[in-house]
Design a protein around this nucleic acid. Structure first.
Lengths: 138, 138
DNA sequence: ATGTTCACTTGCGTTTTGCAAGCGACTTGT
DNA sequence: ACAAGTCGCTTGCAAAACGCAAGTGAACAT
């Protein structure tokens, strides 16, 4: 039983975002979909940070309940579910970008190439993500 | 005993951000400092979302350990501590802004005036925040 | 028919959270 | 000087969330 309509703590827009995304896994799942093109439960499990299966299942359920991702069966393999970002999910790209840029400025991290790409032309980068995510995959 | 140097789950810059900020309270504290000018424990307790005292104390400790905020005694009242954003903390303004704009686009929220202000001229808004936070208060 | 893959669920011990109460240092009022 | 706040916490405890390992059922592969 899910509870998408639990009352919010406040009407502040930042609080709304934090209640939907403020945990240690949700944004990483979105990153995997947005930047790495991952789409299945198995693929998300394989991320560097290695979520537990029950937590991953819960996060996917929550993100779907919030309308950030949506699910469909793989037509070529009935066992697989394919998770995709909705427009609302794709629209998180600027948030992801700013979080990456902030960490890039203030922390020692890997993947400097990605950070440089974002810095060089942020709008172009965002446009590429939108284009890549919005059209159905071949 | 605090543990600022616990090993990260991965070197990904997004993961670094999520490990520092990915919970239900940290960004709200930063919002209160950045947008509402709050500076003391008591003031943070008075936010709409009403954090528990132990959680608030923990979050302030963590944010300080990460260098996002810093603490000093109030010279006019020895009981009070004044919490302020460091440059690293002020630099979270674009992240806050994108989170607010995203929620504003996709959720029913209050404070539409703030959202409109951010939409109208994002750079101007960010410049104002930087200016307001960087100079010591009178 | 048998074994494997996939997307989970279940059980269980540990950690984090939320709530209420308390505490010590400092300040205010008399 | 002294009692009564105020401030920034800490402590105790119950409930929820998390991490890990194992298991389950449906769908494929051979």
């Amino acid at each position: 039983m899910r509870k998408a309509n639990t009352k919010r703590r406040s009407g502040c827009p930042l609080n709304a975002s934090v209640e939907m995304l403020g945990d240690r896994w949700s944004l990483l799942v979105i990153r995997d979909m947005m930047l790495l093109g991952r789409r299945t439960f198995k693929e998300f499990l394989g991320s560097y940070e290695r979520p537990a299966t029950n937590v991953l299942a819960d996060r996917l359920r929550r993100l779907a309940a919030y309308g950030i991702i949506r699910t469909e069966r793989d037509p070529t393999d009935g066992r697989k579910l394919i998770y995709q970002l909705t427009p609302k999910g794709i629209d998180l790209a600027p948030v992801l970008t700013e979080l990456v840029l902030w960490a890039g400025r203030h922390e020692k991290t890997e993947n400097r190439a990605l950070i440089r790409l974002m810095q060089k032309d942020k709008e172009k980068f965002l446009a590429q993500i939108r284009q890549r995510c919005e059209q159905p995959r071949k």
